[in-house]
Design a protein around this nucleic acid. Structure first.
Lengths: 252, 252
DNA sequence: CGGATTTTTGACCAATGTCAAGACCGGTGG
DNA sequence: CCACCGGTCTTGACATTGGTCAAAAATCCG
């Protein structure tokens, strides 16, 4: 299994160094809609920015948080890709998700008050840390923040059930490729071509398939002109066809 | 597919008629810890009770809420069992969960602001309706209520990922039986014997198996002395053995 | 360039799904 | 009380998807 190269958490970056692109970042972040001055008063805005710590860089295999650690904060991915996974005591890994810039992780840790999974960097990653006690307090004062938190949590329940059904390998892979494309597009990246940052084995694990099956299906998709794959680079060629395959899984 | 016999929602019961067992009910409800006078001041308590509407009875097949309806409230099951399910436009059903008394449904509707699934009674069901706007307002005023909501949402994310992994039919069924037993026990019912209210087909769908497989596995479990099944009545005979089977799925 | 890791490919296999038939069960009406 | 009916559940025979194993090919990095 992939193990961390470094020791785990790194000390916070000097926030000042990041101020330059803070606004740019916030525009794609999970809290963007409340962070950015969209009808939110300056004081509240500052309070939210105040409680955010910028942390990074993490490198491939580094752990942002680890299963069992006491829960203290939510994280938003600021750059790079993070996978969340559970490893049982016999070493079986279960990949729970892949998280792109602007997406929030740690939401499943609130209730047990411990992180129930590891969050592992798949490449060079920067994150924002939101102290949860501070965030709760703020949420009680600012309805928009509270609502945003409820929304993030609720949306995560919906996402989690997306792949929960019984579907063929083709359906799952088609949905996976489209879903990633849509999420990249939503964050302002190219809509039809991107890099699969994670190894095939992780994709397979996430989709409950064997790595060999992922390989074979991608190959077949390419042979049929649905996508073009070169190593980890993917280009979506025939989106309607993929969408048709994925129709049982993806949101209408 | 099972269709509703009646038209759907029924008018609210007269709350006064239920006052008698309100306390008893609250002690097993998802909001019990905040509703009951455990350090919570009387005024707040009253405000929470105020916004609850008791609704029912629903009968087998009746719909508590339906996919696509505008989201306005969370529901707690008060009696009976509710299943949540999605039906795609080709009629394929996907069962998302079974909900026992004291459990909350509708949490996945907050974000899309519409119910993303149907909630269907499997037998005679009573629910409590929590107006969400009212609940949010209250949450902003009472930290315990806010925290409770965050907890409920977060726990649901965790639950949803429980069966998300790749597991054998045996593992899944063992986990399913134990999970139900634990949830019944947590609500004060018998810990080792209960009635499977739902048809085999629903269990199968939920666990991504064929109904025939459910049938065969239950049979085998019985032959091996792990459980005793008689129609929909189940008794757990060898819990340690089941737990061993389910060890990859169930919480430590 | 060389070793490790990841990915691909082929051959085979097993778990589970599918199909079909029959048993069971609860309710209904004669 | 019994026969019947519709739905549910079980069982058996068979089919199929996707998993497993093994080895070769490609890729990555130092």
């Amino acid at each position: 299994m992939t193990q961390m190269h470094h020791s785990g958490k790194l000390p916070p970056h000097n926030p000042i160094a990041d101020d330059g692109d803070e606004v740019h970042f916030c525009s794609t972040c999970a809290f963007g809609s409340v962070c950015l001055p969209s009808g939110l008063n300056k004081t509240s805005l500052n309070e939210l920015h105040m409680l955010v710590e910028h942390i990074g860089p993490f490198h491939d295999g580094d752990v942002v948080f680890r299963s069992g650690e006491r829960f203290g904060a939510l994280f938003a991915v600021r750059a790079g890709m993070v996978k969340t996974r559970q490893v049982d005591d016999e070493g079986h890994e279960q990949v729970l998700g892949f998280h792109l810039p602007g997406e929030m992780i740690g939401l499943d840790a609130i209730h047990p008050a411990r992180y129930p999974c590891d969050a592992v960097a798949l490449d060079t990653v920067f994150v924002c840390r939101f102290s949860f006690p501070a965030l709760s307090t703020l949420a009680a004062k600012i309805p928009d923040v509270q609502q945003r938190l409820f929304d993030l949590l609720s949306a995560d329940i919906g996402k989690t059930s997306r792949y929960s059904g019984d579907h063929t390998a083709d359906e799952r892979l088609a949905a996976f490729l489209l879903d990633l494309a849509a999420r990249y597009a939503a964050r302002g990246f190219a809509a039809n071509a991107y890099r699969l940052v994670m190894p095939r084995a992780d994709i397979a694990n996430y989709l409950r398939l064997a790595a060999e099956t992922v390989s074979r299906v991608l190959r077949r998709f390419q042979d049929h002109g649905l996508i073009h794959v070169d190593g980890r680079e993917v280009e979506i060629v025939d989106k309607p066809a993929l969408r048709k395959l994925a129709r049982h899984i993806l949101p209408a």
